[in-house]
Structures are given as structure tokens and as C-alpha cells.
Design a protein around this nucleic acid. Structure first.
Lengths: 288, 288
DNA sequence: CTGATTGAGTGTACGATATACACAGTGTCG
DNA sequence: CGACACTGTGTATATCGTACACTCAATCAG
């Protein structure tokens, strides 16, 4: 096997379906295949690009490709991120991209990490750890909503790049100076990231809808229509009661946008929940 | 417009790219298109199948199609769920499916709702609301891990079907008898669903890896490799410190599987976090 | 300086996939 | 009985990712 640039290793592109029904050796081979592919994808995220001295100079670089790809996804969602579209946005042929990324997944990995960016430093006014964590959570949520296509990703086991780690680093730094053990910090980090991630789903869905140019009312109507079907259905007594109650607004899993008579917006709901989570963590800290 | 069975409404299948750059009327049209499509998808989820009286009897029904599709996804992930694969699993032509579902998205909607299933009733031994919620959360997490392809879905604005609602109904019922207002219940529901959803990501990733026949060590090695790159990197001082600390095991965003010297498993980490969240909610309840 | 070597970008082709469209057969109702 | 509505099929097409073979430029060894 020659060190052939970064080309993909798998010679046959789609033996996916023929997998798994054979012997154990085949399963082992598949596992090591997967491991090798993940290793390659991770390496692409972390290794700086080294220009070989021979041959013609490249006319683009990974970063410009990534920027073009992100612009497409920002504008029209992940489906618009096509190898052809990216290449022609840069004025190149589709296949030219494969000099920079061995396949689409690797390109998307890079897009994801670039899109995550680095978290903003907490403002100096944030004195307590709770304020710092809240600032971090809001920043993360804002970032996720600004790039709703991140939640659209079909490739779920994406490798973690430097920017992904930087968000976790920033959150850990919120906990510094509290005398916590590393284990405690990790536990707290898991809880906060879990809550923020899961609790942003609805907001992201709305953000994506907005990015596609759909008015908020259309989105709300679609979500509300499904919930509305519960009303009166004997299978959903509590849901019916809650949905028909005067307040109406705040919906399952996140929220509908604020409605008349209910001052709470989706963002306020998120912050309120975060306060509860932080209460729980604080209680644990002080009980030690 | 004749009541033409359930066929899709959009005559041109892919004017996606030509969208958004025109006038506002076009954007409005796109919005109403989207609204109509969502309405149709939602309706398919909720309406019982009505057999027309004329014509030959259908030889399959939506439910059998859904079961076949789910079996494919269970076995080989979402990528294996192909219209062709589903049809031939049932002994039909690809196009026959389009009599039952107007397009793949609608089929997947149905698969998602069917796969969610209904939550198990809390055992009689669960007396307090915290026990009930914990039971619910574990059930949901277990369900998500059993169907890791649910997290693989590229279509994010899926309509909410009856089973989706039933999970929320069950969670609301955990809160009954506490004298909560509907608003309070909704707020608490949002927090719990948010945490459970977000906090299950890592476990789901592992479950998917297992479903593909990858040994746990390979998955752990892949995740660990990325984290390991942080060690010694000046950009990630806290992360380095935490990762190199004696404990090692519990990783960002969830956890690596339990390792020597650290008794905590991923599930225990999840439950620990849930306890903190519930502490926070309880504190809010009793402070009223 | 010259020829070999290496690597960049192109053109073409293929396989997979969703799905439009036209058609054939079948069961029901007027 | 005959028209019609509806079911499943066969065929065709557009879109994608990407393998492969090729052209040409930049560099280095002699």
C-alpha cells in the first residue's frame, strides 16, 4: 500500500448490505475497517495540512473548501451541501475536492468543527460559577441555533475536533476555583451539556424553519397541530388538560413561541430550566 | 384538485436550489408548500387507513410496511432503509410502496412513531414522583438505545405522532397529584425531556456502534483518541488535567464505559445527573 | 539544462437512490 | 355487463457520491 495522499481506503464502495451475515472474521474485518476510517477522519481534523514540495501548487486549501461548504449549508440547509455545489462555488470540478477530503463525511466533519467555532470568553462581570455556566449555555444555544444544519447531520459518530473540545474546555473552566475534583467536574459537565443539548432541540427546529424562510406562524401551526390532536383524545388526559389550560403556550420538549397571556419565551424557558439544573448541582456541591 | 389517494402534491420534485433568491411571493409559496407537506405528513400519522370501496383490495397495509422498514433499520441502520429494500423485503416492487406512503419521509415518520412505542407503566412500587420520573427516564433511554437509528434521522422537523405524545403524557402523569399548575408541569417536563434527550447521546452512539457489530473497545478507542489529543495541548489545560487525572474514565458529554478504578458506568452517570436535575426541580417545588 | 517524478485538477462513467409516468390487471357499482 | 376506480408493475430520469484514467504543471536529480 503506497502512501497515496489521503485517498479513501475502501475499494468497494457499498458492501454495506452484504455485511454482518457472514462469519466472525468478517465482522472483525468490518470493525477494523470502521476503526481505520474513524482514525483517518479524526486525523484530518487535527493534522495541519503539509504541502509536499514536488508537483504543482494546490490552488485551494481545506479551509476555503470548508468555508464554501458552510456557506451553502447556512443558506439552504445540509441538503444543499453537495460535492458538486461546493466545488462549483469555488470554480472547480467536483472531483477536485477529493484531493482535499477523501470523502464527503470527512468534509462534513471539518465543516462541523469549523461551524462550532470557539466559545466566547465569559465577560468579566461574571463572578460566580453559575453566571459563567449560564453565559456558556446561552452561547452554545445561540451557536446551535445559528447553524441549525448541525442538528441535521445524519452522520452521528463524527469525530471530535479541536473546536468541539474547546467548548468543553470552556465549560470546565467555569468550574475552576471551586475546589472540585476532576471527577466532580466531569460529572457536572455531563449534566450541563446534556441539558443544554437536549433542551435546545425545539429552538433549533424553529431556527431551521426560519432559515428556510418559513414564517414563525407556519412552524408554530405545524407543531401546534400535532399537539392539538391530543386534546380530547382519551389516551392523553394530562396532555389535553395542560394544552387546554388557559396558559396554552409552552409546549412539550421545549416551547412554542410566547403567546398572549404567557410572558415566557422559549429562551426564558431554557434559562429557567437551567436554573433548576444548577440548583440541583449547587445543592450537591454544598452538601459535600 | 381531485381526492387523488395520497399522492404527493409537489409536481416538480427538486426546485430546492432555485428557491429563496426570487421575490417574496415565491417565498410565501414555499412556506405554504412546506405547511401543506407537513400537514399531509401529520395526517398520515394520525388518520386510520380508510379503505376505498372500489378497486382491488390492497395486499399489504401501512403497518406491515412500517414493520419491514423498522426491521431493516434495526438490523443495519438507517442507511439500510431503502424504498427498494423495504419493498423487496415484502416481496413487492419499489413503486408499490408509493401507494401507501407518498414519499420516503412519510414512511420514516411512521417508522419513527412506531419505533417509539408506548412507555411502560410505572411499577406499582414507584410511590414518589421522583421514582416515577426516574423510571420514565430509564425507559426512554433504554428505548432510544434499542433503536439507535432514531438519532440518525436527517429529517428533523418530523411531525409528532401518537406514540411521541404518549411519552409526554406518561411523563406528565408522573407529576400528577402534586398540586402543580399546568404551567409548572410543562416547565418540569421540558427540563426532564431536555436532560434525558441530550444526556443519552453518548449512550446512543455506543448503541449504534454495537448494532453495527463494532466491539466496545473499538468505539471507546475512537472516542478516547480524540479526547487524548487534548492532553498536553496548551489550548485545553482543564481538559488535559481532567483527562490525565487518576480516575480517567468518565468522558465528556456522557462517558466512556467504566474502567478500572472507576466504578461508575455510563448509566450510573446518567442517573446521577438525573438526580441532580430532580433535586433542582424539587427545590423549586418546595420553595413555593 | 533536461528528463523523470510527483501531484493537481479534469472528464467520464457507474451504481445507488428516490420518484415521475404510463400501463395492466382486478374488483365493485351503476 | 360495462365503466370506472384502484392496485401493483415496468420503465425512465434526475441527482449524488465517487472510482478511474488522464493531462499538465511544478519540482528535483543528473
Amino acid at each position: 500500500m503506497k502512501p497515496k495522499s489521503i485517498k479513501s481506503k475502501k475499494p468497494t464502495p457499498a458492501p454495506k448490505s452484504a455485511r454482518a451475515r457472514t462469519e466472525e472474521s468478517a465482522s472483525d474485518a468490518a470493525a477494523s475497517d470502521v476503526a481505520a476510517e474513524l482514525r483517518m477522519r479524526s486525523q484530518l481534523l487535527w493534522d495541519a495540512q503539509v504541502r509536499p514540495t514536488r508537483g504543482p501548487k494546490p490552488t485551494m486549501d481545506r479551509d476555503s473548501v470548508v468555508q464554501a461548504a458552510i456557506a451553502l449549508a447556512d443558506a439552504d440547509g445540509l441538503a444543499a451541501l453537495t460535492m458538486h455545489a461546493v466545488a462549483s462555488a469555488l470554480g472547480f470540478t467536483t472531483m477536485a475536492l477529493y484531493r482535499y477530503f477523501p470523502n464527503k463525511e470527512a468534509l462534513i466533519d471539518a465543516c462541523v468543527d469549523a461551524a462550532l467555532g470557539t466559545p466566547p470568553a465569559p465577560p468579566a462581570s461574571c463572578t460566580g460559577w453559575r453566571e459563567r455556566v449560564t453565559h456558556w449555555a446561552n452561547a452554545k444555544r445561540t451557536m446551535l441555533c445559528a447553524r441549525p444544519w448541525l442538528a441535521e447531520l445524519p452522520f452521528v459518530a463524527a469525530p471530535h475536533g479541536p473546536n468541539w473540545l474547546s467548548w468543553h474546555e470552556a465549560l470546565l473552566q467555569c468550574f475552576s476555583g471551586l475546589g472540585l475534583t476532576p471527577e466532580d467536574m466531569m460529572d457536572m459537565l455531563s449534566v450541563v451539556t446534556g441539558y443544554v443539548q437536549g433542551s435546545s432541540d425545539t429552538a433549533i427546529s424553529l431556527a431551521r424553519s426560519r432559515a428556510r424562510g418559513i414564517p414563525d406562524e407556519v412552524w408554530a401551526a405545524a407543531v401546534g397541530a400535532d399537539l392539538g390532536r391530543a386534546i380530547g383524545d382519551p389516551r392523553f388526559p394530562m396532555l389535553s388538560a395542560v394544552l387546554t389550560s388557559a396558559s396554552g403556550g409552552l409546549a412539550a420538549g421545549g416551547a412554542l413561541p410566547a403567546r398572549a397571556g404567557r410572558p415566557r419565551t422559549m429562551e426564558e424557558g431554557h434559562e429557567w430550566g437551567l436554573e433548576r439544573v444548577l440548583d440541583g448541582l449547587e445543592q450537591h456541591l454544598t452538601s459535600d
